[in-house]
Design a protein around this nucleic acid. Structure first.
Lengths: 239, 239
DNA sequence: TATGAATTCAATTGAATAATTGATTACTTG
DNA sequence: CAAGTAATCAATTATTCAATTGAATTCATA
């Protein structure tokens, strides 16, 4: 295929990657995989896709070098190929935020409680954590939490938050986080907590970015590990 | 359009950007625009496209927030929207290089004189430039050169290089650069120079990356300027 | 070895894209 | 104002892509 012009051939390769990025479902799947390695059916479920459809999208991501798969027993576990994929997604996000009117509109409408909710940077949160002055709240699902989370975080999925409020000490500031910058969970969590009198704030983005920034993470199966290449702890025991 | 799920709507926006990236011709056009603001016909010419086709690709890039256009007289000048676009392209490139077998294959075949040609990093070149120990050679077209180039660079387009070799002092190391990491010009220039006994090396990537890294540039219309937002000096006098 | 579960494959349909062509719209200049 | 230039628009065709359905693999376990 066209080697008359080598740089055109390289561009064709880049285009393969870009087109694989270019579907909302695949972006959603990537965000989910950014939480940790995960089986096809689990991903399909969380993304609201049929298994066959998710499988095909995932295969396409794999062909484009954005994801990798390995077989474990009868399931196939997919994960992002590379920390650089998170960077790529971040760059994409930045362009859309800065230059697309529609995206800015959406942010204003749904996410721009942003100003009033004063997101914390990773660095700021890190400092508070070291000082022991903060309760870190992970509002994702228990499975995602188990695959990896911020050290010392408490896991209360959003839908259970109201019921389990008492688990959070009212005396201390709470910082909530979820799947990523455009995951609504942490926004809603902070709103709810504030209604109940908490001093609550959001982390600026989510777990994947924290991990990609090589901040410490820990997983459920035991010891904290500084920032190791997330061992295959997919806990999707389903049905 | 689908505001039931705000983060799905955001993903749809990101997908718009990604799909706009996802065509080899558009990537080529972006590389060309990364050299500096440029008129449609010029871009079409350099990319080897018909004007109508280039126009449509450019419009799509504009709609996706990757490029902007302004009208000057009877021509429309397009440029990249944002320094972040160069970052995005870089991230794309890195994924393809690391994870796509085909891309690695191409690099080996066409570009992996890489090792033997020992590319210089921007920082290294900067140091040599300050020390006055290097001749910087720009092998792009005069128009591209005029729109912006490394300070003190000599412009000899590749096809004229052999004829005008005497313009380069044989006593000093030569560092060549061109449009970007996958532009063949600088590879060929270095090969040619070495055949003629020069101590020649390549810059690791091209002018756009240099500029995006906020290194000093200068343009033909006069004074060097530290790294200002490239003024509209499109010198495409054509035909 | 038979059963069931997880995933992939194959074939179909409808939708979105890309390139081409020719016509049309702005703008400049004589 | 007329002529010419630069860019865009409109309509066509071939291609690629997405989602669905149902069948086919592959593996684990009884």
């Amino acid at each position: 295929m066209s080697n008359e012009n080598p740089s055109a051939a390289m561009f064709a390769q880049f285009a393969v990657v870009a087109r694989a990025l270019g579907h909302p479902h695949r972006l959603a799947l990537m965000q989910l995989m950014a939480q940790g390695e995960c089986a096809v059916e689990t991903l399909a479920d969380r993304a609201g896709l049929t298994v066959a459809n998710a499988s095909q999208h995932l295969q396409r991501l794999r062909r484009a070098g954005l994801a990798t798969a390995r077989k474990e027993g009868q399931r196939v576990l997919y994960r992002l190929a590379d920390g650089a994929v998170v960077d790529l997604l971040g760059a994409l996000r930045r362009i859309a935020e800065n230059n697309l009117a529609e995206a800015r509109q959406l942010i204003q409408t749904y996410f721009d409680r942003r100003d009033s909710l004063e997101p914390l940077t990773r660095r700021e949160l890190r400092r508070l954590m070291r000082a022991g002055e903060v309760t870190v709240l992970d509002v994702r699902s228990p499975e995602e939490f188990a695959a990896g989370h911020l050290p010392g975080a408490i896991n209360i999925p959003l839908r259970e938050l109201e019921r389990r409020l008492r688990m959070l000490p009212a005396s201390q500031r709470v910082v909530a986080y979820c799947r990523g910058p455009y995951c609504v969970f942490s926004y809603e969590a902070v709103a709810l907590l504030r209604e109940h009198g908490y001093d609550a704030r959001r982390l600026e983005d989510g777990y994947p970015e924290w991990k990609a920034a090589r901040m410490p993470v820990e997983a459920n199966d035991g010891a904290a590990r500084p920032s190791a290449p997330a061992r295959a702890a997919d806990t999707a025991r389903r049905r």
